[in-house]
Design a protein around this nucleic acid. Structure first.
Lengths: 126, 126
DNA sequence: GGTGATGTGCAACCAAACGTTGCACTACGG
DNA sequence: CCGTAGTGCAACGTTTGGTTGCACATCACC
């Protein structure tokens, strides 16, 4: 019992992707191909240090990794790990969607069979 | 320009769903149909007050709403808003997935055309 | 109708995370 | 060699997830 969500979601990946700034950073890295803390901070409403911290987080969960390049450090997305994150995203989305569909069907069925909206006999409160 | 992510994601919905506890709460509400702060806290590793706060957050973004029922307050998922959240989830997932595919194709093409890995002429640094 | 149990709400407090400013350090360029 | 552009570290403030403690409302039973 208790099937909860099934696909055993990875909380680290989720929280990494849950932050809006990190989401935008991933977006920039994906469209730009690569970027440094400074180059990313120029396209974001936060300072370079904030970006650097976020890059650290993303690096720790393996979503990006860096290659030193002269005096700068270029980050780029790790395709494999990123694909896994996207997969988990859509997995949860699919699960929830399925659950919604089922609930809607049940609701329709109930609504069709009986139509009493509120009171009359209510002693099922636990 | 700057196509970023396109579907204009709703940061509030995202952060609501980004928290693992809230995600599990939504999951419980979906499978159980409804629940109070106390009933949810019994199935979660956090206290009732934490659950109550999360319910407040979810309520403020419209993902759940409550109906007083005697001395208890039963929360249930708002189907419409929840469907919107799921839609945004899969939208971002789809966008990222598409971008990954394109990058992979480009990478393959580059790898095929030229094979020099690093230096020789590099003055495109901005 | 009291009295205890159950359920909720509010306030104070703690810890972690996001963001800032400031400064030190390294590498490139004249 | 000296200035500049890029990074790293540390201190600090604010928000957020979580806790404990207590006050208040409601049901249940005698």
């Amino acid at each position: 019992m208790t099937p909860t969500v099934g696909p055993a979601i990875d909380d680290d990946l989720w929280s990494a992707v849950g932050d809006p700034t990190r989401r935008r950073m991933l977006d920039l890295l994906l469209s730009g191909g690569a970027g440094t803390a400074t180059s990313l901070s120029e396209q974001l409403p936060v300072t370079r240090q904030a970006v650097a911290k976020h890059l650290g987080v993303l690096d720790r969960v393996g979503l990006v990794h860096a290659t030193p390049y002269g005096r700068e450090k270029r980050y780029h997305v790790d395709d494999e790990q990123f694909a896994r994150a996207v997969a988990q995203l859509s997995a949860v989305g699919a699960t929830w969607d399925a659950r919604l569909q089922r609930i809607k069907r049940i609701a329709e069925a109930i609504e069709r069979s009986q139509d009493d909206t509120d009171n009359e006999n209510d002693n099922e409160k636990r």
